[in-house]
Design a protein around this nucleic acid. Structure first.
Length: 175
DNA sequence: GAGCCGATATTCT
DNA sequence: GAATATCGGCTCC
């Protein structure tokens, strides 16, 4: 499912892809609009200092879902990309609702800003640490790549990091 | 809309 | 004890 190309190129191609979850019988789906790539020898990456308990699934095979807790209270979802053991992943930062918007409102407890941030995206889709390490092909959360990128892509520096800020590996879909 | 700030878990120094 | 791939609520324009 994940092509064998550099992680930043994969990140770019994930824009417009559909991420669908079916949690407790409730289907929800978004189209991705914002992602960030994290590569090997990348000081901003969780994998930079090697494999640990918390980032174990980042080293699994491409197409694995890597979920981690951020700032103690939010979940963030990543798509593992590199071959087994490399620790490459793409952080899914934001999307637009496609199906199950009512369920997203319920989970989020509000009617706006449903999935315009990494933590919010996970909450809207019902993604938690329980899904860490599951397959995006056969698990409760599934990814479908878009044929073409539906719009214009801009690349910027990544958000919320202090190292590796020179890499323009944050990709945002506009229009 | 921009800017501050508190809440909170896990890891590393 | 500090840092961190954040969010939401609150201010003040």
């Amino acid at each position: 499912m994940i092509p064998d190309i550099p992680v930043d190129e994969i990140a770019r191609r994930l824009l417009g892809a559909r991420l669908r979850t079916e949690i407790e019988g409730t289907p929800t789906e978004v189209a991705l609009t914002e992602v960030e790539a994290y590569g090997p020898e990348d000081p901003a990456s969780h994998a930079f200092r090697g494999e640990r308990n918390a980032n174990r699934s980042m080293f699994k095979k491409p197409g694995t879902l890597y979920v981690y807790r951020s700032y103690g209270m939010h979940w963030c979802a990543n798509v593992v990309t590199g071959p087994v053991g490399t620790g490459e992943a793409v952080l899914l930062r934001a999307g637009t609702p496609v199906t199950g918007e009512a369920a997203m409102r319920r989970r989020r407890g509000r009617d706006d800003h449903l999935c315009d941030g990494p933590g919010k995206l996970c909450q809207a889709l019902g993604i938690t640490g329980d899904l860490d390490g599951t397959s995006l092909e056969t698990g409760p959360a599934r990814l479908t790549l878009a044929g073409d990128i539906p719009g214009k892509v801009i690349a910027t520096s990544r958000i919320g990091i202090t190292k590796g800020t020179d890499r323009l590996w944050r990709f945002v879909l506009v229009q």
